[in-house]
């Protein structure tokens, strides 16, 4: 990217590229955070507790919801300049919200089966990992709602496109983290 006769880095880094770089750095930081919580979870893995309590169907549903929202954001990010991305954003937001409701329902189910933060290190690690992840989905849904609200007052032009690009990256990341959680907590323990 850096050529000897650089015509000025400003020429190479338009607003969208800068937004992507900034979000990319943020996602690296988040990746380290989730990675370490995941490692803690792996070190406290308890196949017995997982088998008794984690529900594979619920896990699959949660995964499908996030894959759908990532897909929706992908379509929104790659839509032609003339097309209106807002239906896709709405899809993503709704899908994310349903994920949160389902996840909350699943947490309550687990707690009623006495798998809690205080019950075992496995419980502590699972709820912390999935809980922090759920918070990041919530943050994503809120940001999508903000984009949608702003979109009604301002036409979706260049500036919104940078934000859209960055937010889409965030959603890909959040979905990828869930895939890892699903893989380690559900698949690895249950299969």
């Amino acid at each position: 990217m850096m050529r000897q006769d650089d015509r000025g880095s400003r020429m190479m880094w338009d607003a969208r590229a800068r937004a992507n770089l900034g979000m990319g750095m943020f996602l690296i930081a988040s990746g380290v955070l989730f990675g370490l919580l995941l490692i803690a979870f792996i070190s406290f893995r308890d196949a017995a507790l997982a088998a008794q309590n984690l529900n594979l169907q619920m896990g699959a549903l949660l995964t499908a919801l996030l894959v759908l929202s990532a897909f929706a954001l992908w379509r929104a990010r790659n839509s032609k300049p003339a097309a209106d991305p807002r239906p896709w954003l709405l899809t993503g937001a709704v899908s994310g919200t349903v994920f949160l409701i389902a996840q909350a329902y699943d947490f309550r189910r687990l707690i009623s089966r006495n798998l809690t933060v205080a019950q075992s290190p496995f419980g502590s690690a699972y709820f912390t990992l999935a809980g922090i992840h759920a918070l990041s989905v919530l943050a994503g849904v809120i940001i999508l709602a903000m984009l949608l609200a702003l979109g009604r007052r301002i036409e979706f032009g260049e500036r919104r496109a940078d934000a859209l690009s960055a937010v889409a990256l965030y959603w890909y990341f959040t979905s990828a983290v869930w895939l890892l959680i699903f893989g380690v907590a559900y698949l690895w323990s249950l299969l």
């Binding site: 930081a29 988040s30 380290v32 370490l36 502590s124 709820f127 912390t128």
Partner: peptide, 23 residues
């Protein structure tokens, strides 16, 4: 790359202290 590691540890400590976690 480094600061989030502290954040992870702090989250786990707060889970232990506030939610009776067992990390």
């Amino acid at each position: 790359f480094a600061l989030p590691a502290l954040a992870a540890a702090l989250i786990m400590l707060l889970a232990d202290r506030q939610l009776n976690g067992l990390f």
